[in-house]
Design a protein around this nucleic acid. Structure first.
Lengths: 236, 236
DNA sequence: TGTACATCAGTGAACGCGCGTTCACTGATGTAC
DNA sequence: TGTACATCAGTGAACGCGCGTTCACTGATGTAC
């Protein structure tokens, strides 16, 4: 049984890699992603600069790994939330998960959803992770019944649904709801985390909450007191 | 009458400053704001590096000037649009102005609304420019009538309206509408400009349009139950 | 009008720094007989 | 069990580069009498 047991060396390798990434996050938190320096990380770990090249081919590979981990952590949180029981207040719970993830580490949020890093292009497998998240979101958006109203944008979505490949039979209203969820919540979060609400005196959490509540009325306008509101009343 | 006529030297100074900023924007477009280099700009203008210190005290002052100009250009566009005739389709026009401004120069958009530059803090006068924009927006949001429904978030806004100082009598629904306008449209724009819609096959312009259309139902939505609301209600 | 002086744009050398990355090398750790 | 060998982590020096910024200096331009 020598099968997949990891040698001590492999174990150590992974441990160091993990520590490098940890220090990298700390550095990003302090000075942003574009100021990430391999030498500085090495120094912080008590090693010389070139030592890191035993663990990462170059700076870009480290950044890629960070992006990958960031996507993965959000996707996992989404999936875990879906496992907790789908259906009723599914969207509200996903919204909570998204917000918590964003506030937990704003720089991680910006690495994924902020200003693109100049020369950098994300690897193909993060696209797949993004699809996983979208799939969970579409699950929560898929509601039975009432496909009546014809909305211009929903007709467009009905004809351009490649991105929702995991849900080939989802009604256009569900596709629209998923996109609306995504863009509205990122709207609040990106403004909030970039500091555009500071000094205004209002509580961004309540705006976020209001936007979650308003989702109930997306496909066709509804009442302003949705069950989602009541379900999330214990928030602050 | 020697009054405020500018000397040739002053004229020349402003001209060079302008050219420096122009090259700076080009550079930002290529490599992002954090890679902005005074030396590179000087070289591009056929001058030596230190020459720029005749025009800007340091790198930070140049960035500040770029941020200031960016804010100013959007505020001016807003104001010009408001002059064109306020009222009914006011919000839709402002939305158009915002989108055009964002797409016209994505890097300018990100400089203002993207990931904050690490050490950088915006000067106080851009806050004032931001207030000008908000004032125009609040003008467009002030619609007579329907102050009936009490919404949780609007109550919060009624108690925290310092940011809307230019409109001390605006109804809470108008305050909410302005914030919703702002965050929803930035939600679409920031995702779009960061490339999160590329490869999905859908047209972000239509999502944007749909969000603008949906604003009509923000303050007080219609009475009918939406499918989503019903679905969220039935198994709780 | 011309002459003397002050102002200011721009240069080139230099300082100190940190970056990513390569290379030849030393030592320790694991592996095979 | 010990010995011989291969693997691999980590070092220190070095390369080439570009950065922001200072400084003393040259020349041209404007100003005052």
């Amino acid at each position: 049984m020598t099968g997949s047991t990891k040698s001590p060396r492999e174990r150590y390798r992974e441990q160091v890699r993990e520590e490098v990434k940890e220090k990298a996050w700390q550095q990003i938190a302090g000075s942003g992603a574009s100021a990430l320096s391999l030498n500085a990380i090495a120094k912080q770990m008590g090693m010389s600069g070139p030592a890191l090249y035993r663990y990462f081919a170059n700076r870009d590979e480290l950044i890629t790994e960070l992006v990958r981990d960031a996507y993965r952590s959000l996707a996992d949180a989404f999936i875990a939330s879906a496992d907790g029981g789908a259906g009723r207040t599914g969207l509200a719970r996903l919204a909570q998960v998204l917000r918590r993830w964003a506030l937990e580490d704003p720089h991680r949020y910006f690495l994924v959803y902020g200003t693109p890093v100049p020369g950098y292009h994300a690897p193909p497998d993060v696209t797949e992770t993004a699809s996983e998240m979208m799939s969970v979101l579409l699950d929560a958006c898929a509601t039975p019944g009432t496909e009546s109203r014809s909305h211009a944008f929903e007709e467009h979505l009905a004809a351009h649904r490649a991105w929702a490949g995991s849900h080939p039979d989802a009604p256009p209203s569900a596709l629209r709801l998923a996109l609306t969820f995504w863009s509205r919540l990122h709207g609040v979060l990106s403004l909030e985390l970039a500091g555009h609400f500071t000094g205004m005196g209002l509580d961004p959490a309540l705006l976020y909450q209001a936007e979650v509540d308003a989702l109930g009325g997306v496909p066709s306008p509804g009442p302003d007191q949705s069950p989602v509101t009541l379900a999330l009343a214990d928030n602050s």
